[in-house]
Design a protein around this nucleic acid. Structure first.
Lengths: 115, 115
DNA sequence: CATATAGTTCGTAATATTACGAACAGAATA
DNA sequence: TATTCTGTTCGTAATATTACGAACTATATG
């Protein structure tokens, strides 16, 4: 099958979901997102280096990738950089997941009410 | 930091989420999962080859990856193979996402009620 | 049995991911 | 100003991902 403008089967949502998933496809990045996704949570690169078995440069690359994916943002608090979730894009990701899981929405709601 | 048995920061959930995300990190695989995740939905490899700009062998690799991740399963209906979602693992993935998005649960519920 | 059909596996090549240490940039501090 | 601290970028190497076509397996069909 030939890919043209008119018959592109990968719509905007599919591309967004795959990019979001790619950003979350490494344990280090999931760890960071989990840490940051709590209400008002933030952290510094140094915190992560102490918690994780990874070097500073590799960690910096992971942070860069999460920034590039729009999922986190860094605020300079010299000499540190304070990282936190990019709420707008994070909620967009939540939306996309919700849409994908729409067929299992019944189960989702069941477990929500059980909380 | 050294990684030992006792201080492994990547727990089971983190590993599972990253593996699930990896399985969803390519547009072809998101397309397949979206197609199959609807109630009682299924498809054949031939359907996908006709819908997507990808060869049979590459598609087969993507299907293999989704199978390996436990997200889909194939049932032989010779000469075809009928693919569908592996509901058990799919719902586990929903659980993990829900847990990750727990901090944005308020927004999630808001949009649920709006449906 | 010969052939066609559906799909997988293999071999290969191009590109992407991941990690490390060294070198670097910028700000705080002695 | 020299030094220290935090974090990024660069260069490099190992490994993983992705795609293709050819060859293969298995089943259905003439």
């Amino acid at each position: 099958m030939e890919l043209t403008q008119s018959n592109n089967p990968y719509n905007e949502d599919i591309i967004r979901i795959s990019k979001f998933a790619k950003a979350m496809s490494h344990p280090v990045r999931v760890y960071i997102l989990r840490k940051l996704s709590g209400m008002n949570s933030c952290c510094y690169s140094g915190d992560l280096v102490n918690e994780l078995p990874i070097g500073r440069s590799a960690l910096s690359q992971h942070l860069k990738e999460l920034k590039h994916a729009g999922l986190i943002q860094g605020e300079i608090k010299a000499p540190y950089i304070k990282y936190c979730i990019n709420r707008e894009n994070w909620e967009k990701a939540v939306e996309l997941c919700k849409e994908l899981f729409v067929s299992t929405r019944i189960e989702l709601l069941d477990s929500e009410t059980a909380l």
